[in-house]
Design a protein around this nucleic acid. Structure first.
Length: 596
RNA sequence: GCCUGAGUGGUUCAAUGGUAGAAUCUCUGACUGUCUAUCGGAGGGUUGCGGGUUCGAAUCCCGUCUUGGGCGCCA
């Protein structure tokens, strides 16, 4: 850490940089009183700034008046001190601190600002509850741990920018006031005063704009960009969040994946010094669904699922046969323990919570499979199932017979539960994977129509074009997701730059020509004038940084996040506005009456 | 909208239906080598709020508010 940048300032060093070689230097430090250890005579204070802690010493024998003033110091006072660096006695070296070999003996103390007693402690040992942390965020952010997170985030952002710039990507800003497209997530909207009755939307992503930048010939674009979605919050979902958004012209899928892999590698290297192996594993969507029941599998552990629909047909078990008759499947997971009755009861409740009708099970003991359903299976079929699922003594099988979506979802959740409960993985691992070859369309059973699985502007794979008219469910696209430890980190695709093909896609999802024209006309028009093939990706950046640092809560890497109700306990937003303000916008409130 | 957990000194937590405690913090005393200093003393509580049951409620019941996690939602 070099302090050249301080040359115009009164302080000569930060609180994180003085080491043995600085001994005898006369220094001026500024910072916050972190901890105070008063020995009656000598007083030690840990002086804190974002760079670290430095122990400063007030000795009555050294400078009596300064020592008396130091006696009045309390935590979080802001002070300036002048003194001399000296080595600590050998037995008093603090190995936990970078500055632990030295201390500064102080002869001058200026109290720059006394602090009122803080309502929460600025201390990583005792963290206040979420509400207070957000209410006094500026104090919470002073904690060394939080500062570390934001320093890491900054380094990560710089690494991404540098890497992408080195690969010829240009950072170009796209608008925040955009046209509303009422599909997918709910938009935040902003009234336009100069266009009465009209609204802007805040973007959920710069998707269409970055594609237009490709039409404009910028070749490679990126942006570290805020996106907004008016949906309910989760531990890894905030109403505004950051994406690293990229788009590339004349690029194949491998080019985009390589660009993202390079970015992620640079981020981990620069921010936490970790070398990540690239390229990441690639797994087709279908394989992921078959093996893990989800398109965002946590690959830090095994516990793969086994489908036994065919075998189940040969049984006399009514529940399995009934489900199969109903277009369902039978799938199971083998867990490496003999489950107790109580565990099975709990798992059944767990499964029902997520829509399963029930949970069938077999416990494999040394004597063979034990379960009330064993009797419905002939020995041959039973052996086939046990072999297929690799069920050995000391394991158990859990079966779900249901619609594929439910069987997969529930088993995927059970798999995660066992992975966590049995500690089948190292929580510090970072296991990246690409899920590729997604279907372009997904059947919406409730509305009896095709929905885009991800992104309607994606290019169908060449070999699938023949199914566009006959069987849209079979159409795979060059659509890819990045997954880290079971968390979706982003998605992208090769875009559809062919207007005719795009119209076909719209038609399949039931978007009428006029409607498409109204919503995306500007994009379709642009595509007429020489749109190059292009592809892109967007990384959920808050999630990436949080997972990189070893946790899931993205609020710890967002300086001023919202609470679960999308409010900020610090400034109190959202709040009402003045009547005149609403009048200027021609807006009248029509609030529902509160229930009594 | 639904499910589930929490709400007790400033803060973090404890307390079988029977005197609300501890640590930290604040103030204060002692102490010249600590490093989340240590050792004493003091201060600090309408147990979120409103009802109810009970001789007696932090504890049980009902309602309500705040907050965490999840489901729905997030193409």
């Amino acid at each position: 850490m070099v302090s050249d940048f301080l040359f115009t300032m009164k302080r000569t060093h930060t609180c994180g940089e003085l080491v043995k070689k600085d001994v005898k230097k006369k220094v001026v430090l500024q910072g916050w009183v972190h901890k105070r250890r008063d020995h009656g005579g000598i007083i030690f204070i840990d002086l804190r700034d974002r760079y670290g802690l430095t122990q400063i010493v007030f000795d009555p024998k050294h400078e009596k008046k300064t020592h008396e003033l130091a006696d009045t110091l309390r935590r979080e006072d802001v002070i300036e001190v002048e003194g001399k660096v000296r080595p600590r006695p050998k037995t008093m070296i603090n190995k936990k601190l970078h500055t632990g070999e030295i201390e500064v003996i102080i002869n001058r103390l200026d109290i720059l600002n006394k602090a009122a007693t803080p309502p929460i402690e600025v201390d990583d040992y005792k963290v206040a509850n979420d509400d207070l942390r957000l209410r006094y965020r500026y104090l919470d952010l002073r904690r060394p741990m939080m500062q570390k997170f934001f320093i890491a985030r900054h380094k990560a952002t710089m690494a991404a920018r540098n890497y992408l710039a080195s690969q010829n990507f240009l950072e170009i800003e796209t608008p925040f006031f955009v046209k509303s497209t009422p599909e997918g997530a709910r938009d935040y909207i902003v009234p336009s005063r100069v266009n009465p009755g009209q609204f802007y939307s805040l973007p959920q992503s710069p998707q269409l704009y970055k594609q237009l930048l490709m039409v404009a010939g910028f070749d490679r674009y990126f942006q570290v960009v805020r996106c907004m979605r008016d949906e309910d919050l989760r531990i890894d979902r905030q109403p505004e969040f950051t994406q690293i958004d990229i788009e590339m012209t004349f690029a194949e899928q491998d080019d985009v994946l390589a660009a993202i892999e390079g970015t992620v590698k640079a981020i981990f290297k620069e921010a936490i010094g970790k070398n990540i192996k690239i390229p990441f594993k690639r797994m087709p969507y279908k394989e992921s669904m078959d093996k893990y029941g989800t398109d965002k599998p946590d690959l830090r552990f095994g516990l793969e699922l086994t489908e036994i629909t065919e075998e189940a047909k040969e049984s006399d078990y009514g529940i399995f046969k009934g489900a199969i008759k109903n277009k369902g499947i039978v799938k199971c997971i083998r867990v490496p323990v003999e489950l107790s009755r109580k565990q099975i009861d709990d798992l059944t409740k767990f499964a029902q919570k997520f829509g399963a009708k029930g949970l069938s099970w077999m416990r494999i003991t040394k004597k063979g499979p034990e379960s009330s359903i064993v009797k419905y299976f002939g020995k041959k079929v039973l052996d086939k199932i046990l072999k297929k699922a690799k069920a050995k003594p000391g394991t158990s099988l859990l079966f779900i017979a249901d619609k594929p979506s439910i069987a997969n979802d529930v088993l995927a959740r059970i798999r995660l539960k066992f992975g966590e409960d049995l500690k089948l993985y190292n929580p510090k691992d970072h296991n990246f994977a690409w899920i590729v070859d997604y279907p372009l369309f997904e059947w919406n059973d409730e509305e009896k129509k095709w929905d885009p699985m991800h992104h309607i502007f994606s290019m169908p794979k060449k070999e699938c074009l023949k199914y566009m008219d006959t069987d849209p469910g079979k159409v795979l696209a060059s659509l890819y997701d990045l997954v880290l430890n079971g968390v979706e980190l982003g998605s992208g695709s090769i875009r559809n730059h062919d207007p005719t093909l795009q119209e076909k896609s719209f038609k399949i999802i039931g978007l009428k020509k006029a409607e498409a024209e109204q919503k995306f006309g500007f994009l379709l028009e642009a595509f007429k004038y020489g749109a190059p093939p292009h592809a892109g990706f967007a990384i959920g950046y808050d999630r990436l940084v949080a997972l990189m640092l070893g946790f899931l809560d993205i609020r710890d890497v967002i300086a001023f996040p919202k609470n679960k109700a999308a409010q900020c306990p610090m400034d109190g937003c959202p709040g009402p506005v003045e009547d005149q303000h609403l009048k200027d916008l021609n807006i009248k409130l029509d609030m529902p009456k509160k229930k009594k």
